[in-house]
Amino acid sequence: MMFRLILFVAALTFLPLHMARASGGEAEPLVHQHWHFSGAFGTYDRAALQRGYKIYREVCASCHSMKQLSFRNLTDLGYNENQIKAIAGEYSVEDGPNEEGEMFERPARPSDSFPAPFANDKAAAYANGGALPPDLSLIIKARHHGSDYVYGLLTGYEEAPHDAHLLDGQYWNKYMPGHVIAMAPPLSDGQVAYEDGSPDTTQQYAADVVEFLTWAGDPHMETRKRTGLKAIMFLVVFAFVMYAVKRQIWSDVH
């Protein structure tokens, strides 16, 4: 009796949770994409990560910071130490003060974090018509169904309906809550040249950069899932053993 009750209550608990998640503003429902990293055994696609990082560097990074990431983290993308040194070396960062008390510029090292495009949030907002481009380190985790959402947003630009009034610097996006977004369509076909023969399309760019951003927010996902598999296998076997022990001990009571 009590177990039927638990099932009933569990169903009752999870049903509204799902209903709660399904409703969420007026934006169009997200299309669920198939990601290389989804599922219990999903991993990051290294080639997609590297392409996504290229998109970030060449497109997103002109407005969006990623302050939680350092160049050294790029080993996860499959780059080796020398490659990372070379990538970091393309940037210059402020360091100091030196012995004379002066701040100075030097090439970035792998231990440096990604340089931000603007000196501070005020400067970033001012340069972008008053809208602050959010930091992208956690953008996927900070949105419901983040990967599908960001992919939708990057590919969801449309002509505004006739009755909509957009101000200068505002755009219409079917996946943005409220539809109005201050970011100009960032991606267009052929904008970035891929070296590995992947199609130069907006969809491909968006999918790759989402893969990269998902990794950026959750860099230990692969270890997490592998550890989880081991932990759960151990616990399941241990539970079976304990069930047998329990039955054995209780056999004289029943």
């Binding site: 219990a40 997490r224 899932k225 550890t227 989880g228 598999l229 932990a231 759960i232 616990l235 399941v236 241990f238 539970a239 304990m242």
Partner: peptide, 14 residues
């Protein structure tokens, strides 16, 4: 407890 922890681990790791 072990059965409970299996469910717990599903949330923690997945």
């Amino acid at each position: 407890l072990l059965v409970f922890l299996v469910v717990f681990c599903v949330f923690v790791f997945y």
